Computed example of a mutant assay.
Amino acid sequence: MTRAQRYTNIAAVVLPFAAFFAAVIVFWNEAITWRDVIIMVTLYVIAALGITIGYHRMLTHRAFQAKPWVSYTFAIMGSMGVQGPVINWVADHRKHHAHTDEEGDPHSPHVGPASEGVLGPLKGLYHAHIGWLFSEQGRANRRKYAPDLMEDPGMKAISRNFHWIALGSLALPALLGFLFSGFTLHGALTGFLWGGLVRVFFLHHVTWSINSICHFFGTRRFGTEDHSTNVAWLALPSMGEAWHHNHHAFPRSAQAGLRGVEKAMDPSMWVINGLERLGLVWNVVRITPERQAEKQAQAGGAAAPVKQAA
């Protein structure tokens, strides 16, 4: 990781964090309006779906095929989440699946720091949540883990221009706040604060919680060789990604929520279903109940709570 990349990562973590506390402590009830909330939630959903549908299910796992302009649109939406260039993100995540919760996993809470001393679990959770960004993010070999994207000129262009897209995703809420407030500087500033920095803060920590919480606490029902878990209360803010144990059991599945209430709490799949009906995506991978039952039988058939995976 270059010095510039390291400083960029530090800024991407620290600035939204500082902005969140400034917004809550200093500006709450003084500098937030329904306009700001609408801008923040709308851009959060757009960027989150870009990460979950674009970066993750479509580009990392090829859970469905899509028209090129659809793929590029979701890659741009994901870049608005300020989590790194699309090719780097995909390479890191494929490396995670290749070495899940073993040496070589970029962000497991169960290897490296997690095995050292009494505070090992806390160190592991910190590493999986934030620490890996300063030591491992972007280090996966892109030619090895993402050769398909390296051969796609459109994806290379989007990845190369990530910083401009990220900056644009911060400028956009300021512009919207300016326009919707009647062309006021105050509207631009609060739009930037809530729809820009605070929105990035929330999306970052929800995404990073999949790396940390969803490999440490939660429930499991399938026979997998890792420590992945399902965490229901994270399902909606993560657009369904918190059904993470399901995902590790069936990585190519377009669905993370596989049954009952899980399906109702997988917003990313709602969108994929809609795109499929419009003919914009196809070959959507779904897991049959029979395959689920077979995989569940390997784990003894029970959904067991996990406090700490040993």
Results as ranks from 00 to 15, higher is better:
A188Q: 01
A188I: 02
A188T: 01
A188N: 04
L189Y: 00
L189H: 00
L189M: 14
L189V: 15
L189T: 11
T190S: 10
T190G: 05
T190P: 01
T190D: 08
T190F: 06
T190Q: 12
G191M: 01
G191L: 01
G191H: 06
G191D: 13
G191F: 08
F192Y: 14
F192V: 12
F192N: 02
F192R: 01
F192Q: 08
F192H: 14
F192E: 13
F192K: 05
F192A: 15
L193W: 08
L193G: 06
L193M: 15
W194P: 15
W194I: 02
W194C: 14
W194E: 11
G195I: 07
G195V: 02
G195L: 06
G196Y: 03
G196A: 00
G196M: 07
G196T: 07
L197E: 14
L197D: 07
V198Y: 09
V198D: 08
V198R: 04
R199A: 07
R199C: 12
R199P: 01
V200R: 06
V200H: 15
V200Y: 01
V200I: 15
V200A: 11
F201G: 06
F201R: 07
F201S: 10
F201A: 07
F201D: 09
F202H: 08
F202S: 06
L203C: 12
L203T: 13
L203Y: 01
L203K: 05
L203V: 11
L203W: 03
H204N: 15
H204K: 13
H204P: 07
H204F: 11
H205F: 15
H205N: 14
H205I: 10
H205R: 11
V206K: 04
T207D: 00
T207I: 13
T207L: 08
T207N: 14
T207K: 00
T207S: 15
T207W: 04
W208P: 03
W208R: 10
W208G: 11
W208D: 03
W208N: 11
W208A: 09
S209D: 11
I210L: 13
I210S: 09
I210A: 06
I210R: 02
I210M: 09
I210C: 02
I210N: 02
I210Y: 08
N211H: 10
N211V: 07
N211G: 05
N211D: 11
N211W: 05
S212Q: 12
S212L: 13
S212R: 08
S212T: 03
S212D: 04
I213G: 03
I213N: 00
I213V: 15
I213M: 14
I213L: 15
C214E: 00
C214L: 06
C214W: 02
H215D: 10
H215L: 04
H215S: 06
F216P: 00
F216R: 11
F216M: 14
F216G: 02
F217C: 10
F217Y: 15
F217D: 01
F217P: 00
F217T: 03
G218D: 12
G218Q: 14
G218I: 05
T219H: 10
T219N: 09
T219Q: 04
T219C: 05
R220V: 09
R221S: 04
R221A: 00
R221G: 04
R221N: 01
R221Q: 08
F222T: 02
F222W: 13
F222Y: 14
F222M: 10
G223W: 03
G223H: 07
G223D: 14
